[in-house]
Write a protein that binds this DNA or RNA. Structure first.
Length: 262
DNA sequence: ATGGCAATGTTTCATTGA
């Protein structure tokens, strides 16, 4: 089973690349971030033609998330937003897919340390941790994928000295990310030896991708039962190449789906 | 120290992203 997460930076602009990627990778579930489109305008038919059911929680211009589920897989208990947390910004969608709880998330960017948006980000992450604690209690098999807008440690930053204390990297953000893990999740990427300087986002400017000046801010977190079944966790940097890319690359985890021993 | 790139709608600039 493949679970993936990708910040597409506008599903309208990225639709051809997204469809091509779905057809080559064939994930079972893709958590999509920054769709930037109203639900009524979501390209549901194009996604269906690619073999996927779309569950959406979008808004125009900013934010917006979706879960794309390969046709034929059972989908139950779709929920949107953070329960009990009033938020005009549409950033979370969850569903149970073939028995596995999948939460797709687009964490606030934070803009700059000390800004109002930064305070919102930290408050939002605390509420999200509460949500994940509850999801963990109800669903032993839990995967949380998306754009977390936090580089967990200095290995995840191309130039840690230049970024020290900045947004995406600051100590309070990293502590908030660790608090998500402390609900009972692991960063799937670090279950495996990984090539150094592996990132998931590169600035469009200054030839950042060509120079591999990036950050690893997109993650898939797994509960222990899924971590035990995780065969691989990788970032598909090929998806960042070529004309009109998103500034993010997809993250993909592969889970073993053998029969339950009895 | 600054801008640089991309997407959107309020569109020929302002805002946001990371």
């Amino acid at each position: 089973m493949l679970i993936a997460a990708w910040n597409v930076n506008s599903i309208t602009v990225r639709l051809p690349r997204l469809v091509a990627w779905l057809e080559t990778t064939r994930p079972d579930v893709l958590c999509v971030q920054e769709t930037k489109i109203d639900d009524a305008r979501f390209p549901t038919a194009d996604i269906a033609a690619a073999g996927y059911a779309a569950h959406v929680f979008g808004q125009k211009t900013y934010n917006g998330v979706a879960l794309l589920v390969r046709q034929g897989l059972a989908v139950d208990d779709v929920s949107v937003g953070i329960p009990g947390y009033a938020d005009e910004q549409r950033r979370v969608i969850a569903a149970t897919v073939a028995g596995i709880r999948v939460v797709g998330v687009y964490v606030p960017n934070g803009q700059a340390v000390g800004s109002d948006k930064y305070a919102y980000k930290l408050d939002w992450l605390a509420a999200f941790a509460t949500m994940l604690r509850d999801e963990r209690a109800r669903h032993p098999e839990l995967a949380v994928g998306g754009d977390f807008n936090v580089a967990p440690d200095d290995r995840d930053v191309h130039d840690p000295a230049a970024w020290e204390g900045q947004v995406l990297v600051s100590a309070p953000e990293r502590a908030a990310f660790r608090a998500l893990l402390e609900t009972g999740l692991v960063d799937s990427f670090r279950l495996f030896d990984q090539p150094p300087a592996t990132y998931s986002w590169w600035d469009y400017r200054m030839l950042a991708f060509a120079k591999n000046r990036g950050m690893r801010i997109d993650h898939i977190l797994l509960s222990p039962p899924l971590a035990q079944r995780c065969l691989a966790s990788r970032i598909d940097r090929n998806a960042r190449k070529g004309a009109k890319p998103s500034d993010h690359a997809p993250v993909v985890v592969e889970l073993r789906t053998d029969a339950v021993a009895s």
